[in-house]
Nucleic acid binder design. Structure first.
Lengths: 192, 192
DNA sequence: TGTACATCAGTGAACGCGCGTTCACTGATGTAC
DNA sequence: TGTACATCAGTGAACGCGCGTTCACTGATGTAC
């Protein structure tokens, strides 16, 4: 059943969006094609009309996830500055999302094991850091502080998702948030 | 070819150690039994003389990895304090290890997806934080600072392993180290 | 503007590989006497 | 202290399931005339 060109393009986009979710939910290794196709409302057989193979699907899925999470952070930063972006990222709501939003927290270390995906992932991380860097006050060390800030965000979110006690998990987030907020301000004391 | 009880026990320990490496190298999803047995100098068939199934193997592997990395951090902390532990953790040498040492950085987010492993992982993380907390100066906020410190360590190590430029990667480590060092000192200014 | 035909998105069955698991077998260990 | 036998660690072949990939087929789209 051939479809119109416009429809085909929409279908492809739906598949990529589904892959973007699947990969963040299950991880790169366990994400699976049939599941993606089902989520896109199709059967697995049609997959190869749109993609070369599994690798391409999840590369595009990752790219989509990176773009989506980049936009969320950028939008919040534009609205309420780095502090607002930080609060969204380190919120219980974000931590508990059924589909994890941030691919770097969701996939983290796994990305380092896929040479084909690493550059894509890193580019996305650079964008996140740039977003933060633009927003936080201060001089030449803004880039370093933004980098550190993002490391705290990813690290704290990851740990908060492992804590078994919700109170402890919340505390990880709030402690990180407080420290993060300090980093969004230009440093008062010179760096000793 | 039956083996003596002592030998059997040693063999089992060798398998667990191999699993500990395998899981940190490949991740939980891609770690595989045959590879572990090969690394332990055995064939895959003998596996079930020692373990119920795959899940048990990698649970014990994770436990082993947690213990091993816990000991490394504790030893360095005992020798040279939190600063020394921090320096080891955020060193290029640790980042580049063929078998990643820290299971929380190596597996990170993946652990959150395995309900059976999460508690084990979290216990290990608590130990790391406790080790740091005992070492860093200061009052009641030591636990919070240690938690934050460990979040920075895991986050920075994870990001440093994704950066494509070695200079940038080194910089992530050193920026995190500097901030971490501050956290090992009792706060001078009261927390505003 | 219509008609005939090639194209190709999507379906569902089938294939094949990798890997966890099982099994018959071997031969050294440990135990019963 | 020796001997006979049950146990069981380890081997390598085989099984079966899941999943990526292929394929014959369908029928709507888009193009050639």
């Amino acid at each position: 059943v051939k479809k119109s060109k416009a429809e085909t393009e929409l279908t492809r986009a739906r598949i990529v969006a589904a892959a973007s979710n699947e990969v963040r939910r299950r991880g790169l290794a366990e994400a699976n094609i049939a599941e993606v196709m089902r989520a896109a409302g199709l059967t697995h057989g049609g997959f190869y009309r749109h993609f070369e193979n599994r690798d391409q699907l999840f590369l595009e899925g990752l790219r989509h996830a990176a773009a989506a999470s980049g936009e969320v952070l950028a939008e919040r930063a534009a609205t309420g500055g780095a502090a607002h972006a930080l609060e969204g990222y380190l919120s219980p709501h974000h931590r508990d999302a059924e589909t994890p939003r941030c691919p770097y927290a969701a996939l983290g270390s796994e990305l380092a094991r896929y040479p084909d995906l690493k550059p894509e992932a890193w580019r996305g991380i650079e964008r996140q850091i740039a977003t933060l860097s633009e927003q936080i006050g201060g001089g030449e060390d803004a880039a370093d502080r933004a980098t550190l800030l993002f490391a705290i965000m990813v690290g704290a979110l990851t740990l908060s998702r492992l804590a078994d006690d919700p109170t402890v998990s919340d505390r990880i987030l709030s402690v990180a948030k407080r420290q993060g907020l300090k980093l969004t301000q230009p440093q008062i004391a010179p760096d000793a």
